[in-house]
Amino acid sequence: MKKYDYIFAGAGLSALMTVYQIVLSRKFKDKKILLLDSDSKKNNDRTWCFWETPDGDYENLVSKKWNIAVFSDQNYARDLDLSPYQYKMIHGLDFYNFVFNRISKEKNIEFSNQKVINFKEKNNEVIVTTEIETYHCDKLFNSILNAQEILSQQKYPYLQQHFIGWKIKTQELVFNPEKATFMDFSVAQKGNTRFMYVLPFSETEALIEYTLFSKDLLPEKEYEDEIKKYLEKLRITNYEVIEKERGAIPMTSYPFWKNNTQNILNIGSAGGWTKASTGYTFKNASKKSRALVSFLLKENDFRKFHRKDKFWFYDLLLLDILNTKNHLGSSIFSSLFKKGNPTLIFKFLDEETSLYEDIKVILKCPTKPFLQALCNRIWNMK
């Protein structure tokens, strides 16, 4: 059986970011590293969007950026000046190619296109089993989400940000490529939190996504019917669907870190690296990967890596509300963006605000549902 220092079970965003940061540090040349994934990472299977200041870690991969984001509901629309941030988009395949090209130059790092089916800790090492081979390692980084583990408990709600998107090309000049529609809640809510998301690349091309924050996925036809209705509302009739994408991102404050052991660390969505209240992953994963590499240089016990903070609790309260009253999502986000300072809101969502700034943001939200959620949490802790 082959032996490695580090094995990554799953080579998704968080694993690749972590390995990339390991390479950049130049302090792990003596570590033998293996990435295992059933996907070859040779397809453009997703698009990541995030907000950050102009010069980010992956600026060279950004295919489009916007300085203005539009927020809408049935009653109003607001152009959000994102300065000093920009809203950025990176294609999955561009990211995969960039990272794999970089790590291919490292003699101590390997990638194998295999599906991990099991792993266990034994005698201070980890045994990893794939469909065709068994490996040993000192440390395992697991990014394979076990959704059933979360669904089997009741203490922490589990929602999903799920969507279908169409990249379309129109015959007429219909889009403003300088503005991204961040959230448009003018669509029928149907008892859920539902909105449209529009990323225009030019006057004739855009990505249109129908997105929900809710527990259950919809039949494919329902997403696509809503996209068609939205395009009709925009008076867009002559268009070609160039690409389609579909996704479901976990939204939960479940304490994944409690399953970490001395030698097994859950990362990515399997480790709670997705921002629970929004489903955004790229920026969070970037921060976490840098923090993890710094941790590896100082510590050897993975149980010490995670620290619970105030933002975890804020996210939990919002998910508690959406779990029982999913229809309130539109009013909560509308209150926030209608009255709030966009720069401060995005800073808050990036988990970089002070307590004073937190209060300024939170006070823009409807008071009653959050007080009820807080009281319920306090009561359940007794």
Score class of each variant (00 low, 15 high):
290 R>W: 00
283 K>H: 14
290 R>T: 14
277 S>R: 02
273 W>S: 12
282 F>E: 07
300 N>I: 04
282 F>N: 11
290 R>V: 14
282 F>A: 07
271 G>I: 11
294 S>W: 00
276 A>M: 02
287 K>M: 13
270 A>Q: 01
289 S>E: 05
287 K>C: 10
283 K>G: 06
286 S>V: 08
284 N>K: 08
285 A>Y: 04
296 L>H: 04
290 R>F: 09
295 F>H: 08
270 A>K: 07
278 T>A: 09
272 G>V: 13
273 W>V: 11
284 N>G: 15
295 F>T: 07
280 Y>W: 02
282 F>I: 11
275 K>R: 13
280 Y>R: 02
299 E>F: 10
271 G>Y: 10
295 F>N: 00
277 S>K: 04
300 N>K: 12
272 G>M: 10
297 L>A: 13
277 S>W: 02
271 G>R: 11
291 A>T: 08
293 V>Q: 06
274 T>M: 03
274 T>E: 05
279 G>P: 07
301 D>F: 01
270 A>N: 01
294 S>I: 03
296 L>V: 03
271 G>S: 09
282 F>W: 09
276 A>W: 06
275 K>I: 01
283 K>Q: 10
298 K>V: 11
295 F>W: 10
282 F>V: 10
299 E>I: 00
290 R>C: 07
293 V>S: 04
295 F>A: 02
281 T>P: 06
273 W>C: 13
299 E>W: 01
278 T>F: 03
278 T>V: 03
300 N>C: 00
277 S>E: 09
300 N>V: 00
298 K>T: 14
295 F>D: 03
278 T>R: 00
288 K>E: 15
285 A>R: 00
295 F>I: 02
286 S>M: 12
272 G>T: 12
297 L>Y: 01
286 S>Y: 06
292 L>H: 01
282 F>L: 10
291 A>R: 14
295 F>C: 02
282 F>Q: 06
286 S>H: 13
277 S>H: 00
282 F>H: 06
284 N>W: 00
285 A>I: 05
277 S>N: 07
287 K>F: 14
278 T>P: 04
278 T>I: 05
301 D>R: 07
288 K>Q: 15
295 F>E: 04
289 S>G: 05
299 E>M: 04
286 S>L: 12
300 N>S: 14
292 L>E: 09
270 A>C: 06
273 W>D: 12
280 Y>D: 02
283 K>E: 14
288 K>S: 13
301 D>T: 02
272 G>D: 11
276 A>E: 04
291 A>H: 12
288 K>Y: 12
279 G>A: 02
272 G>W: 14
288 K>W: 06
278 T>K: 02
284 N>R: 07
272 G>P: 09
299 E>L: 01
271 G>P: 09
290 R>I: 13
288 K>I: 08
274 T>D: 07
288 K>G: 00
285 A>E: 13
294 S>L: 13
270 A>P: 10
285 A>H: 07
283 K>Y: 15
299 E>H: 12
297 L>F: 01
282 F>G: 10
